[in-house]
């Protein structure tokens, strides 16, 4: 992580879900080629942290700094329109992100044969693959992914692992919350359990509670 410029850096980040602080003091830096796996029990705040990184939510304290428009976010919902075909869905996101060509993404996620199929007629795993193919057409360097392997079979997990590896090799970076082994050797693992925010009554740091709540709700 040294020598290369940071694509994404978190500095003493504290995040809240529904007004309740869940994580505090999270810091890390990602540069080109880095992969960070987020681990932690359910409810620890992995999704909240990823939403904050993606800029969908304001941090309670601390800072997220990254190159502008670097983050491609993917969550539990794939953002697919069931009355559009696979190709139409992908072409839309490619147009929104100003990139051309969806063939590589279709091929990368093994969807070429399904290109003309309505998204409504896809299986859960196929929908997931389409959602992940969207990442390939965004052309963005940092992927922030929330449980990307849900409903994928073993072959598709391997396919996804290869897509992540290719992305890293091209100078990208990724933060992935997952409990599945993606088959990538050089991943760093960050266990979020030590960063859990405790209320002052439990002996936790009180800064997260006295922070600027007004800003959090703006």
């Amino acid at each position: 992580m040294t020598g290369k410029p940071d694509l994404l850096s978190l500095n003493a980040l504290a995040v809240a879900r529904g007004g309740v602080p869940v994580l505090e003091g999270v810091s890390f830096n990602l540069s080109a080629g880095d992969l960070l796996i987020l681990r932690g029990p359910n409810g620890i705040g992995k999704t909240t942290l990823l939403r904050t990184i993606a800029g969908l939510q304001a941090p309670l304290a601390g800072r997220v700094s990254c190159v502008p428009e670097a983050i491609a976010y993917a969550a539990h919902a794939d953002g697919l329109k069931s009355t559009l075909t696979v190709a139409e869905n992908l072409r839309f996101w490619a147009a929104i992100h100003g990139t051309a060509g969806i063939d590589a993404a279709l091929e990368g996620m093994n969807l070429t044969a399904l290109a003309g199929r309505m998204a409504a007629n896809l299986s859960a795993g196929q929908k997931r693959r389409l959602g992940l193919a969207r990442l390939l057409v965004t052309g963005r360097p940092v992927w922030a992914l929330d449980e990307p392997t849900v409903s994928l079979d073993r072959a598709s997990v391997a396919l996804f692992g290869r897509a992540v590896a290719a992305h890293l090799a091209q100078g990208g970076a990724a933060v992935i919350a997952t409990h599945v082994d993606l088959g990538l050797d050089d991943a760093q693992v960050l266990d979020l359990a030590p960063f859990r925010a405790f209320s002052p009554a439990e002996g936790g740091r009180s800064t997260a509670f006295e922070g600027d709540f007004g800003g959090a709700f703006l």
Binding site: R51, A54, G55, L56, E69, I71, A72, Y73, A74, A75, H76, A77, D78, G79, L80, K81, S82, W93, I96, H97, G98, R134
Partner: peptide
């Protein structure tokens, strides 16, 4: 909002 597109549009370049 239901299918998650709005989140993705909010992170999109437009």
């Amino acid at each position: 909002h239901e299918d998650g597109s709005l989140d993705l549009l909010a992170t999109a370049p437009i």
